[in-house]
Design a protein around this nucleic acid. Sequence first.
DNA 1: GCCGTTTTCGGCCCGACTGTTTTCAGTCG
Length: 565
Amino acid sequence: MLRNGEVADLLERIALLLEASGEEERFKVVAYRRAANSVRNLERDIEEVWKSGELTEVQYVGEGIAKKIDEYLKTGKLGYLEELERKVPKGAPELMKVQGIGPKTAYKLASRFGIRSVAELSAALKEGRLDDVFGESVRASLLKAIERLESYEKRMLLPEAEAHFEAVSRYFESNGVGVGMAGSLRRGKSTVGDLDILCTDGRATSLLARFSQVGQVLESGPKRTSVRLKDGVQVDVRVFDAEEYGAAMMYFTGSKDHNIALRNMAIEKGWKLNEYGLFDVKTGERVAGRTEQEVYAKLGLQYIPPELRENRGEIEAARSGKLPRLVRFDEIRGDLQVHSTWSDGSDTLADMAREAMEIGYEYIAFTDHSVSARIANGLTEQRFRKQWREIDRLNDELAPFRIIKAVELEIGPDGSLDYDRKFLNEFELVGASLHQSFRQQPEKLTERVVKALSDPSVDFLCHPTNRLIGKREANPIDMEKVISAARDGGKMLEIDGQPNRLDMDEYWAKRAMEEGVPIVVNSDAHSAGELDNMAYGVLVARRAWLQARDIVNTKSLRALLNAVS
DNA sequence: GCCGTTTTCGGCCCGACTGTTTTCAGTCG
């Protein structure tokens, strides 16, 4: 699957350039975007599809696009793209990153005024060179948009997005207005761009504009208000009637691709679906709209949980009644990667265990770091034995709650592991981790991980790709190979619930599940409060279509210990 | 450029908001 994303990016780039080319190519742009999406979400490896001559069988890939993919995969180049790069005024695609500048304006600025970058646009605006093009208010809002681009280009992690939603929603509630959350936060995406809030109370739009945390009101009408909070987060609130609310929720929860697919389904049935409801085209009569359940049911679909709404097969599954019963947080019976003061955690074994009991878990595994993780205060064999005595005492005290003796074991630069075999076998659970020497060649990295997974004492691989969202890309390891190695060796792969890791991501978690690899979802907590990170891990699992049966730590203690012994 | 129970042409999701618009184009989501 490695090159699906690459081909999708290629098609996406063509779409962007066509858009900025100044020609009326609107639907061609749409066609390339759809094809890009389709390739990105393809279950099969695009190279395999290509080799078997079946490119045009991919949805939205016809003769024209198939030829271009063929040329690219054969030669590594694409003449059409190069030609576009030459033809399109330099800078036009970049200018479109500025909110308020679309293809038309970008083309005009680049071709007529020779503006080639956002920086040049900023200068031109400040020097008054564009006073004839834009009115004063547009110039001001463009300058603000540019400023934002420079400082707030990043998306929020889930806890930050949740905190913002809670603050806004508390403000509304204190004014007697109840609101609902939509958008990618409701879908549980790992990063969130802005907040979409829905409401049935007409006061909401003007209320939001008066919220003390608002830095700038972007637009405000009776049905919709958009603001930028002081720290840069955009919040949109929209008002609907109660009978429209379900359709509006669906519309603004998205994803866009999911919605478009639903709309097309509606059209086939002689209906029209928009944010106000599902309507009969002939009579104009409302068929559904008050609740999401009602709309999905009318379309002949099972209710689709927000986490699945990405147009990645959920609609077909819902049509045939085959949606997975997604794992729920309350099905998780324990946490199998947490740290204590014995290594780099900030809370004691006892405090962590009591918090876990409070959550309702039946067990917890302390995976303090192994000895070569020196900056994380990794434990020697001697210190582990001391820790185990404390664990034994706590297990007596807290029974039937059970603390599992575990370790987060360093994978050395050559794939070697800490400790001798005899000692490793004494752990009840071993998670192996890569924390160093990331700069190795991809083959070498993969080999290290595969070697560790072939060790009989290792039970699972922690945060398999080592990404740090917004900071560090995923390691270039061959995840297909890692998944095969896990499957063949009977090992588990982890979804680490730390909000800046969420690793593996939903894509690889789904692949692993499809290959029959058991998944473990953990908080990777370094304090009692961080045990709550489990919820983020569960969101990833849900977005990966996982059910309780796919996840090891939904098992009872006995079944779990059997599975890892 | 893609697609087809509307099938080789003529569609392609569609509504809210803004600006300097006097009837609609551009942008966004």
